[in-house]
Each structure stands twice: as C-alpha cells, then as structure tokens.
Amino acid sequence: NQASVVANQLIPINTALTLVAMRSEVVTPVGIPAEDIPRLVSMQVNRAVPLGTTLMPDMVKGYA
C-alpha cells in the first residue's frame, strides 16, 4: 500500500504548504504520493483543507 499526503493541520485556502502541515499515511482513496512531499513545499492549496484530509492533485496549485 502506498502512503499518501494527509493534512496534519487545517490548511487555509491559498496557504503555502510546509513540512509541518503534511504527513504521510496509507489511506483510501489514494491521494498525492508521500514521496512528493518535498515537491509540495511552498506550493499553495486552492481550497481549505481540513485536518486529516488526503491531499488530491487538484487541491494543489501547479501540482497536476
């Protein structure tokens, strides 16, 4: 099972992602792969992401 990126805190809309804001977890459905965490740092989310939410490619500006 592949680990996905999960919000480690509430991430407000247009907030730049940080290492502290993300964690890796095996979840269903699978979201952005955990190995992409370094690439996600400083990218912005295009919606509010609640704690525990799996990050999907369409939630991160410039990711997809």
Rank of each mutant, 00 (worst) to 15 (best):
E35R: 09
P33W: 08
V27P: 01
L17G: 04
I13H: 10
P50L: 10
V45R: 00
I11D: 01
I13M: 12
R47Y: 07
Q9A: 14
S42A: 12
V6L: 06
S24F: 07
S4Q: 01
V26P: 05
A64M: 13
A64I: 13
A16S: 12
N46R: 09
I32N: 01
Q9G: 05
V41N: 04
D36M: 11
N8K: 07
M22L: 13
M59A: 07
M43C: 09
G31D: 01
M56T: 12
N46P: 02
S42G: 15
M59G: 00
S24I: 14
Q44H: 15
T18S: 12
I32R: 01
V6C: 04
A7N: 02
M59F: 10
N14W: 15
I32E: 02
A3S: 10
T54K: 00
D58S: 10
M56G: 03
L40D: 04
L51Q: 13
Q2L: 13
T53Q: 13
G52L: 04
P33H: 11
T18M: 07
A7H: 00
L55K: 00
P29L: 05
P38I: 10
A48P: 10
T53D: 10
T28P: 02
V5I: 11
A21R: 08
N8A: 15
V45D: 04
T18F: 06
V6F: 00
V20D: 14
A3Q: 09
L17I: 10
S42L: 09
G31E: 01
P12M: 08
V5E: 02
M43S: 04
Y63R: 04
V20R: 14
P38A: 11
V41M: 06
G62N: 13
S42N: 13
P29N: 03
V27E: 03
A16Y: 15
Q9Y: 10
Y63C: 05
N8R: 08
A16N: 10
L40R: 00
T28M: 11
R39Y: 15
T53Y: 12
I37Y: 02
M59C: 05
A34P: 05
T28W: 09
V30L: 15
R23V: 06
V6K: 00
R47T: 11
R47H: 07
R39S: 10
V41K: 03
G52W: 02
A16C: 12
L10G: 09
L17Y: 00
V6W: 00
M56P: 03
G31Q: 01
S42T: 14
I13L: 13
N8S: 12
I11P: 02
S24R: 09
N46F: 00
E35Y: 10
N8V: 07
Q2F: 13
A16Q: 15
A48M: 14
Q2Y: 15
A3N: 09
T54R: 00
K61P: 10
M43Y: 09
A64W: 07
K61C: 15
V6Y: 00
I11G: 04
V30P: 14
M22F: 00
A48W: 11
T54F: 00
G62T: 06
N1E: 15
R23F: 05
A16G: 08
P50K: 09
T54G: 00
R47A: 09
D58C: 12
V20Q: 14
S4W: 00
M59S: 02
M56S: 06
Q44S: 14
P29M: 04
Y63K: 05
G31A: 04
T15A: 11
A3G: 09
S4L: 01
M56Y: 06
K61I: 14
L51F: 14
M56C: 06
T15G: 09
D58G: 09
Q44M: 14
S4D: 01
Y63A: 05
S42H: 15
A64H: 15
A3I: 06
Q2W: 12
S4K: 01
P57E: 06
M59L: 03
A64S: 14
T53M: 13
A48S: 14
P38T: 09
D36A: 12
S24V: 12
R47V: 14
T54N: 01
R47M: 11
G52Q: 02
A21Y: 15
T15C: 10
G52D: 09
L55E: 03
R47N: 05
G52S: 04
T15F: 13
T54A: 05
I11M: 04
A7R: 01
L17A: 00
T28K: 08
G52F: 03
D58N: 11
P38C: 15
D36E: 15
E35I: 12
P29E: 05
T18N: 06
M22S: 03
D36C: 14
E25L: 09
A3F: 11
I37W: 02
V60R: 01
P38H: 11
M22H: 00
E35C: 10
R23M: 05
P12H: 12
A16I: 15
A34C: 08
V45W: 00
A3C: 12
M59P: 02
L51G: 12
A7M: 06
L17F: 00
M43D: 04
E35M: 10
E35D: 14
I32V: 06
T15H: 13
D58V: 09
V30G: 08
M43A: 07
E35V: 13
G62K: 07
E25W: 08
V26I: 13
M56V: 07
N8M: 06
E35F: 12
V5H: 00
D36P: 00
P57V: 06
L10K: 10
K61D: 13
V49R: 00
L40T: 00
G52E: 03
N8T: 12
L55Y: 00
T15L: 04
L51S: 15
